[in-house]
Design a protein around this nucleic acid. Sequence first.
DNA 1: ATGCCTCAGCTCCTGAGA
Length: 255
Amino acid sequence: MKLATWNVNSLTVRLPQVLEWLHANPVDVLVLQETKMTDDKFPAADFAAAGYFAQWFGQKTYNGVALLSRNHAVSMVKNIPGFADDMARVIAATVDSVRVIGAYFPNGQAPGTEKFEYKMFWLKALRAWVRTELEQHAKLVLMGDCNITFDDADVWDPVGLKDTIHCTEEERYHLRALVALGLHDAHRLFEQPAKSYSWWDYRDFGFRRNRGLRIDHVLVSDALKADVRACTIDKAPRKNERPSDHAPVIADIAI
DNA sequence: ATGCCTCAGCTCCTGAGA
């Protein structure tokens, strides 16, 4: 079973690239973030024609998530139950006995801002909910744009970006606490190329200079850890004329 | 440079992303 996550930064703009990517990479599950569209605009027919069921949860202008799957997805959940949020950030469903959670973590803007405080509250709520999900589903994959680096190896300039957003100790504490529930960063289960990133700033030739961050993660539960065959960041879509600033991350699990 | 690029929207500028 191959599962992937991709922040597309507007599905309206990126739909042709997503369809082309699915044709070249016929994964079993793909979760999308930053679709930036209301639910009535979601291109479900295009994905159906490509052989994918879809679940989606969006809003105007910002955020928006979706879950595409080769097989039927059941028991869909939108956002974190019990956590009031007017932003569409989470979609979860069960596909082929695996609980899949696709998430677009808050950006947080900068430490000390209201958006950073919201990010901390959101992370606490996510953790409490994922704990209960893990109790019910031993096989679980949580993946998405986590907007947090694990450590300096995920940062192109750890000195210059020390304590800035995505790199603060407070954010990393929450990411570690999430993983400590019984999850594993699939990327780090394998030897990876040095300076592996999943996001690059559009400005200043960030991708060309490989000035990036690894903030898109695939986290697998204890029960799946031994079955993960590979985890790769696919930079191929960056060759498109108007690429997303994020690359897809793919995990291959023997299920 | 509290910017650089990209996207959405009550669109010819502004807010947000990361």
